[in-house]
Design a protein around this nucleic acid. Structure first.
Lengths: 163, 163
DNA sequence: ATTTCAGTTGCGTGCTGCAACCAAGTGGTC
DNA sequence: GACCACTTGGTTGCAGCACGCAACTGAAAT
């Protein structure tokens, strides 16, 4: 069961291309302000879609270290895009929430991104794009699950991971 | 013509998720050796698929600065994965080519990646994965074209771009 | 009191772009 | 042909961002 190795190999090339475009496309004209260093913008977007949550939630969901989120949260807070309040039930945790400004800024950014993609895919039928979005969304869901599962074990003998 | 803004917006979420997984998934267990710093591995893979070409070709195709490619080429050369020879017709340019070792290493890596994806998408029908690969490949082709076109102009008044 | 957990900070590293630079080719003028 | 400016492919110095790990603080939980 499952796809053949060849089929999976076909996925590698566009995936690689997509990775490479991170720096380029999304960083070229698609920044928030000059202050928010782009990576934080992704976090902000996530927070908008998730609603109020804690730092560790974001870290887990984005599969990055908590320290990374912590720093980005600081940047966003200083920029007035989110607010932080201690959880009344557990004063260790900070509950994060976007400000009105943050919501607005994200909406603008998302729109700019969508426009940009629309320009790139101007020859596509709408249904085709929707199909791609659906497939990619499903794939990402499964891939992230697999990433987390196989990452938590970390027993595969392949220590010395990231750095 | 073209997809609706809403449809494009649907694409943003999985795209963002995919970006976030760069660090994680592909860096966890999918490194070449401990020497080749991962980004160079992508370049090597590209070189395998492209055949002998020059530094600037790779830079243009990956939409990165030539200096980046230059450094990665150095790393790959030191690792014995590629060779460099001056173009007889124009002694400024270096022609790059993968070594036999480089080819072998890339093949192994691609296989590992394909296996990994196969595990993540184990519940998928083969045809569905192929469909995703096709759509994503087409999309990336159009997106890169659009990136390069709108990037070369650089007239959009949005100077002070990348950094 | 000890342990555990959420979050923060110090530090080192990898990847990137820009600016400055070198070397080689191109085109003009004398 | 010789000499000059100009362009082009590539490299290196430098600075910036993003990240992970280790060490730490303060608040639960046991």
């Amino acid at each position: 069961m499952g796809p053949t190795p060849e089929t999976c190999g076909e996925l590698l090339r566009p995936l690689r291309a997509l990775m490479g475009l991170k720096q380029v496309a999304l960083q070229r004209g698609l920044q928030l302000s000059d202050q928010v260093p782009y990576a934080a913008a992704g976090l902000l977007t996530e927070l908008v879609h998730r609603g109020e949550c804690r730092v560790s939630d974001l870290a887990h969901h984005r599969v990055v270290d908590a320290s990374v989120v912590s720093r980005q949260v600081n940047q966003l807070e200083q920029a007035g895009l989110i607010t932080r309040r201690p959880d009344p039930a557990d004063r260790r945790v900070s509950l994060l929430r976007t400000t009105e400004l943050g919501d607005r800024v994200v909406a603008e950014l998302e729109q700019k991104k969508a426009e940009w993609i629309g320009e790139a895919l101007v020859d596509w039928e709408d249904a085709k794009v929707r199909e791609l979005a659906r497939l990619l969304g499903d794939a990402m869901s499964d891939i992230r699950r697999h990433t987390i599962e196989s990452g938590d074990h970390s027993d595969s003998g392949m220590r010395e991971g990231t750095r």
